[in-house]
């Protein structure tokens, strides 16, 4: 088995600043892996490199959706990366505010559809069928995430926790094999975090999607993830199971003074 996502010596420089420093990382099929580290450690930059928002300045990124064939995806545009099956959420919620909740999810389906301009104008049978299916599929995803009651609301009018969940729903709509969640629990209360916990496990189980998450909420990280990678100042300082990480002196050192987060 090849890891479904693997980075080799991944490096990202901004001018003189090295935000991601030679990170070797891998995630296997069906795993839930967490990436943790103090603020500014380079976690989101790492995400941005993988998803094509930034072009890494060094190293390689490989994906293997089927678990056998590796493919290098450095420098591909974000929309291509998404098409290949990596979907993400954003730390600072980036929903399509003036579109309805359902439409947000429908946008996620976009890359799995094929209707073109002529189909739209002529409303061919194929287009109509496809449109109907998009609505159905999107609605189904909303059901799964528990957002159906907001289906025709504008995304901007949703309560905060629901917006975070809609981000996940939208990402799931792209049919990914790996879901990258950037601080999904940020700003949530303990009850909402608990629900999120269940949701993540549910997604993995029912949809067979692997999950990589960046998170500061240690209770969530420790309870859902099988493996944890710790970064600090752009470098990978530890990896292991939650229990190993808890005892790792390097990690404790890195988090010292940042205790409140843990």
């Amino acid at each position: 088995m090849v890891p479904i996502l693997e980075t080799k010596n991944l490096t990202m420089d901004f001018g003189g600043l090295r935000a991601v420093d030679n990170i070797n990382f891998h995630i296997n099929e069906g795993e839930i892996v967490a990436l943790i580290g103090p603020n500014g450690a380079g976690k989101t930059t790492f995400f941005n490199c993988i998803t094509g928002v930034y072009k890494p300045t060094g190293g390689d990124i490989f994906i293997a959706p089927d678990g056998t064939h590796s493919e290098r995806i450095n420098g591909l545009k974000p929309n291509i990366v998404t098409e290949k099956g990596l979907a993400r959420t954003f730390q600072n919620i980036r929903l399509f505010q003036n579109m309805t909740v359902l439409e947000n999810v429908m946008i996620g389906r976009h890359c799995r559809l094929s209707a073109g301009i002529l189909g739209a104008i002529l409303r061919t049978k194929a287009t109509l069928a496809e449109e109907k299916k998009v609505v159905d599929d999107s609605y189904e995803i909303l059901e799964e995430i528990g957002l159906t009651k907001f289906a025709n609301e504008f995304a901007k009018n949703l309560p905060y926790g629901a917006q975070r969940r809609l981000e996940i729903a939208r990402a799931m709509a792209t049919d990914p094999f790996l879901l990258l969640l950037d601080e999904p629990a940020a700003g949530m209360n303990p009850q909402e975090t608990k629900e999120l916990d269940e949701m993540i496990l549910h997604i993995r189980k029912n949809k067979k999607i692997s999950i990589l998450l960046i998170e500061h909420d240690m209770s969530l990280v420790m309870s859902v993830s099988e493996k944890i990678f710790v970064v600090d100042y752009g470098k990978l300082i530890a990896e292991g199971t939650p229990d190993e990480i808890k005892k790792n002196p390097e990690v404790i050192k890195a988090y010292l003074g940042d205790e409140t987060d843990a």
Partner: peptide
């Protein structure tokens, strides 16, 4: 950026 990340060219 979000729309690109959702697979839109």
């Amino acid at each position: 950026i979000a729309s690109q990340s959702m697979g839109i060219d």
